[in-house]
């Protein structure tokens, strides 16, 4: 059987950070207890000249720097985000041009709350498997929006990750993937609206936990695997607490999820979250390591993946692009006023 999977990877996290404490102090809340409750210390903030397109380009260029594939051989680009800069005009066209993959390729933007990036991986995987393309580029990136004063403001952040999928020089073989989807109105943003709305406490149990649990168990059942068969696990991380509880519930240890748990340091990057988590695991993974990943997107659905790291990981020039740990450490703190300016909270037309 030919391996189909990840040929290279890249990620990008904007450099600005705001502390949960700083946001809480503006709204007269206790930052310490909010930070503890969410398991988030600080979150990334896009600069005034950064958006989902620029984050996607940086992630894609990082992936290309690590390998030696010709961008013209990329036959598809799918970008998952809930913050595409244009409502009409695909982000993928901008990314395709900026990495030199145009014009002979398929492009579409995906949208499925926080799991649109993993949906893009599945599409690329299928196209490669069908031999319709040589390489596909799947990206998940967001500059997520939160209304001022809303609970989401403590976590909604910015970042993204991208994976080149193919069947030559595969560094991480995708052994299997499955999805679990229902109509669950836990979180949404109506067309033409700037900020999302959510079902409050409803978002935990029947949404995040139910979908990730069902999808993860389905995949392990299908493959006849157990949590202890995996070296690493990555779960969607809307905060620092949910992924820890879901891991425990499913039988994964904290040691298994630690490397892919990024939300405490940069917040919830939405479509970028599991992509950045997987990038962080690939930063240090060794040949033979087995990785389990389940994303979650409100609305709602989950995608699970079973991945094995191959010997080719040693040939990939991982050092040619920044590691997640370096990007987490490279930061500049901003105050709430600056944050408001950068994220356009003070806008009027």
């Amino acid at each position: 059987m030919t391996d189909i999977g990840i040929v290279s990877y890249g990620a990008y996290i904007p450099r600005n950070r705001i502390k949960v404490d700083e946001i809480a102090s503006v709204w007269g809340k206790d930052g310490g207890s909010i930070s503890k409750g969410l398991g988030i210390y600080e979150k990334s903030v896009p600069s005034i000249d950064e958006d989902t397109a620029t984050i996607s380009v940086e992630a894609a260029r990082a992936a290309l720097k690590r390998c030696s594939i010709n961008p013209k051989e990329i036959g598809a680009i799918y970008i998952g985000s809930e913050s595409h800069p244009y409502a009409v005009k695909p982000t993928g066209t901008i990314v395709g041009e900026a990495i030199g993959a145009t014009p002979e390729l398929m492009v579409a933007d995906y949208e499925f709350a926080c799991k649109a990036g993993t949906a893009a991986i599945q599409s690329c995987f299928a196209l490669v498997k069908a031999s319709m393309i040589k390489y596909g580029l799947a990206i998940g990136a967001d500059t997520s929006q939160a209304a001022p004063g809303d609970a989401l403001e403590f976590s909604a952040s910015a970042g993204g990750g991208g994976f080149i999928i193919g069947k030559e020089n595969v560094i991480a073989s995708i052994n299997s993937t499955c999805s679990f989807t229902t109509d669950t109105p836990d979180f949404w943003r109506r067309a033409e609206r700037k900020y999302p709305a959510h079902g409050g406490r409803f978002t935990g149990g029947p949404a995040y936990f139910k979908h990730i649990t069902s999808c993860s168990l389905n995949l392990m059942k299908k493959l006849d695997t157990k949590p202890e068969d995996y070296d690493y696990a990555i779960f969607h991380q809307p905060n620092g607490k949910f992924p820890v509880s879901i891991a425990k519930k499913l039988g994964f240890s904290f040691d298994q999820i630690k490397q892919g748990l990024i939300a405490p340091y940069i917040g919830n990057t939405y479509s970028g979250a599991t992509m950045i988590g997987l990038s962080s695991v690939l930063d240090i993974a060794k040949s033979g390591d087995r990785v389990f990943l389940t994303s979650y997107g409100s609305g709602a659905g989950s995608d699970s993946f079973d991945i094995t790291i191959t010997d080719n990981i040693n040939m990939l020039h991982r050092e040619n692009a920044p590691y997640i740990e370096q990007m987490i450490k490279s930061k500049k703190y901003v105050d709430y006023g600056t944050y408001a300016k950068l994220t356009d909270l003070l806008y009027w037309e």
């Binding site: 005034i48 000249d49 950064e50 958006d51 397109a53 620029t54 380009v57 260029r61 806008y347």
Partner: peptide, 10 residues
Amino acid sequence: TFRKIQEDGY
């Protein structure tokens, strides 16, 4: 690095 250079308002 790849950035937004300018935008024509909203």
